[in-house]
């Protein structure tokens, strides 16, 4: 069993907690998110014949009155950067999250989730530029969620 700490980062209300809720086996109460700024969940999965256990740290997004608690970043093998497709500014904000994450973990990897694809009109999809390692996801309709996590694991696998 290989255990890895991974983070979910992104602005406030982009759907990080919903993505986790859709995916994980076991989780601590959501109350921790509001009290100490992080909630930890667990997911076991098999990738390329190897058993993995992910300890997923859902880190509270920044709000006008709260800073992102970066002391939780240390020791993470990878991160999922989450943006809300209905709020373009959250996509722009991902680069800043990536910079902040790489400043603490220079050797770690990131994948991106453009979440809430279920809320986007079909004709708007064509105009969205989707960079490599970026997934159109919907926690509500369970679109590309597993692929997102598996891809990250594949990237951090030894």
């Amino acid at each position: 069993m290989i255990r890895k700490k991974i983070l979910l980062l992104g602005d406030f209300h982009v759907g990080k907690t919903s993505l986790i809720r859709r995916y994980v086996d076991n989780a601590f109460s959501d109350d921790y998110l509001t009290t100490i700024g992080v909630k930890i969940s667990k997911k076991a999965l098999k990738v390329d014949g190897l058993d993995f256990e992910l300890l997923i740290w859902d880190i509270e997004g920044a709000t006008p009155v709260k800073k992102i608690p970066t002391h939780y970043f240390a020791g993470a093998a990878g991160a999922i950067l989450v943006a809300d497709l209905t709020r373009p500014e959250t996509i722009k904000g991902l680069d800043e999250h990536a910079l902040r994450f790489h400043a603490v973990n220079p050797k770690s990897v990131c994948v991106r989730a453009y979440n809430k694809v279920d809320l986007i009109p079909e004709e708007s999809l064509g105009s969205i530029d989707i960079p490599p390692d970026t997934f159109l996801t919907s926690a509500k309709d369970d679109i590309n969620v597993s692929l997102l996590f598996e891809t990250l694991v594949r990237r951090i696998a030894p």
Partner: peptide, 19 residues
């Protein structure tokens, strides 16, 4: 129960308090 989760959560709480 679930020592992995407990260790991670203890670590988070410790970080939070230390911070």
């Amino acid at each position: 129960d679930d020592p992995q989760m407990v260790a991670s959560m203890a670590s988070a709480i410790k970080d939070f308090i230390n911070d």
